[in-house]
């Protein structure tokens, strides 16, 4: 009975009319031990099919993520920002003359100028008192020179005394 069924299935199989389930049945039959002698030649075919199903792909595939791309561009952006900073330092502010400012601002400006002038005056005074100090240091230098004359003199007298 089984044989009859298998033969029918095989005929359908050859005409490509079997369903996947029927093909699984056939495969199961030919994988079993008791295959009828006159169907023996089908055996390697079905065995081959089920064996090649087991072949596997074992190589690794290098999957690169492209996260690093963003970081590369950050440095470029930083340089661009710096360049903009260098070449356009005062964006949007034109140079004005004193007359264009409001009277209050003008007054403030003059007052500041005055105060700074006073400050510089006192600095100058300080500088002139430094001048007297430098005079004193000159006198010191002269004194030192004279002292060196004296040491020379004493050396000569020592020599004379030795003789």
């Amino acid at each position: 009975m089984v044989l009859n069924n298998i033969e029918k299935l095989l005929e359908k199989y050859d005409n490509a009319e079997t369903s996947l389930k029927e093909e699984a049945e056939l495969r199961a039959y030919f994988e079993s031990e008791n295959v009828d002698a006159h169907l023996e030649h089908y055996r390697p075919m079905f065995q081959y099919f089920s064996q090649s199903q087991k072949e596997q792909y074992t190589k690794d595939v290098p999957l690169n993520t492209n996260k690093t791309r963003l970081y590369q561009w950050i440095s470029v952006a930083a340089v661009a920002v710096l360049m903009v900073g260098f070449f356009i330092p005062n964006w949007g502010s034109e140079i004005k003359t004193l007359a264009e400012y409001t009277p209050e601002e003008q007054k403030m400006y003059l007052e500041t100028k005055h105060a700074l002038a006073m400050l510089s005056n006192t600095f100058n005074e300080g500088a002139s008192s430094f001048g007297t100090l430098s005079l004193a240091s000159e006198n010191f230098n002269i004194g030192l020179e004279k002292a060196s004359h004296i040491t020379e003199f004493s050396e000569i007298t020592n020599r004379l005394l030795k003789n």
């Binding site: 199989y13 050859d14 490509a16 030649h41 089908y42 390697p44 075919m45």
Partner: peptide, 10 residues
């Protein structure tokens, strides 16, 4: 294809 395989195998 199946018929060819079977034939040759036979």
């Amino acid at each position: 294809a199946r018929k060819t395989i079977r034939q040759k195998l036979n």
